[in-house]
């Protein structure tokens, strides 16, 4: 019954078909082109933008000071949010119901109230508690601090932003931890690893793949949210830009200048996020996506032959190890 299979096929000519036309695309190109031209025209001709005035102040001392403040506020608030968020997430998943309810309560309160309101509350906390003491609960106090000096505006800004962020990060981290297969924890337990070791070495590194993208969003969001601390008041980029705008009676160019600063910094953050995501993709994708540099190089270097081969290989190699060129960064 079975015949020897002949393996002498000649590769046929590739299909040459008439491509589908896309008239809709051309309409869209024209419409968007016209709108873009109008926008560029107005940006260049409307004196209200006042580019030279913006340029004059973009790198002035108060603006740069504001940029630095915005940056460190973002970093410190995110660190506070991340650390506290991980702690809350682990608490939330604790088998101890009291511990997990406490974490739930925290998230409920801090996620359920506006961050602007929280900032104002921290700024005025001294009105609620004139002094803060360390000592026996309900008993004797050993040290007493004046709240107003203990919590200057910088600390109020950090508390407002960081504690609020922790509530969001807790949910993100919890989602990440839950996304890791249960078998991973079982395998680690079976090897004699303890709960904390398992969490740190096995579960969290895998959860990172799920945690990193939304954390990048949170960081970008935080950078912009720092503009709210002007209510504390604390002087960051937006506040300083507004002050200059009001003083010179040119508020609008200063708003645009601040926006360009925010946009530039978020762009840098986006690049960073791409590389961090790539790092945590190890082990979950067969070959890492190329860095933009690698993509550029491959496009300039091996054309035709390489590009034609890439796709069928990637699809066909399901159970086979790779050829060794791609797995490690």
């Amino acid at each position: 019954m079975t015949q020897p299979v002949k393996n002498e096929r000649v590769r046929p000519d590739p299909i040459r078909a008439v491509p589908v036309r896309h008239p809709g695309r051309w309409v869209a190109i024209v419409a968007i082109g016209v709108l873009a031209a109008m926008l560029v025209n107005s940006v260049l001709t409307n004196r209200g933008w006042d580019w030279s005035f913006q340029g004059q102040y973009a790198f002035s001392e108060p603006v740069l000071r504001g940029v630095v403040t915005t940056l460190w506020l973002t970093v410190v608030a995110m660190v506070v949010g991340l650390v506290l968020g991980v702690v809350l997430a682990v608490m939330r998943l604790s088998p101890n119901p009291v511990v997990s309810s406490a974490a739930w309560m925290y998230v409920w309160v801090f996620r359920g109230t506006p961050v602007l309101v929280q900032l104002v509350i921290w700024a005025n906390i001294a009105a609620l508690y004139k002094s803060i003491s360390l000592g026996i609960p309900f008993g004797e106090a050993f040290f007493t601090f004046n709240t107003a000096t203990l919590i200057p505006n910088a600390v109020a800004a950090i508390l407002g932003l960081g504690l609020n962020e922790a509530a969001y990060m807790a949910e993100i981290v919890r989602g990440g931890i839950l996304s890791v297969d249960e078998g991973q924890g079982e395998a680690a337990s079976a090897l004699g690893m303890k709960r904390t070791q398992t969490m740190r070495r096995i579960v969290l590194p895998q959860a990172m793949r799920v945690i990193v993208p939304p954390t990048g969003n949170e960081t970008i969001s935080m950078l912009k949210t720092t503009s709210l601390v002007s209510v504390v008041p604390y002087y960051e980029l937006f506040f300083n830009a507004q002050v200059i705008g009001n003083r010179t009676f040119q508020p609008f160019p200063m708003l645009i200048m601040a926006s360009i600063w925010y946009l530039s910094i978020t762009s840098v953050l986006m690049v960073g996020q791409y590389y961090i995501e790539r790092r945590y993709a190890r082990g979950s994708v067969r070959s890492l996506p190329p860095t933009p540099l690698q993509r550029l190089r491959s496009r300039l270097g091996g054309r035709g032959r390489d590009r034609g081969r890439a796709t069928p290989l990637a699809v066909g190699a399901s159970a086979l190890p790779m050829d060794g060129s791609t797995p490690h960064e």
Partner: peptide
């Protein structure tokens, strides 16, 4: 212990 689904650490 050896599991049905291997449970190797993928990272």
């Amino acid at each position: 212990m050896v599991f049905q689904r291997f449970n190797l650490f993928p990272h």
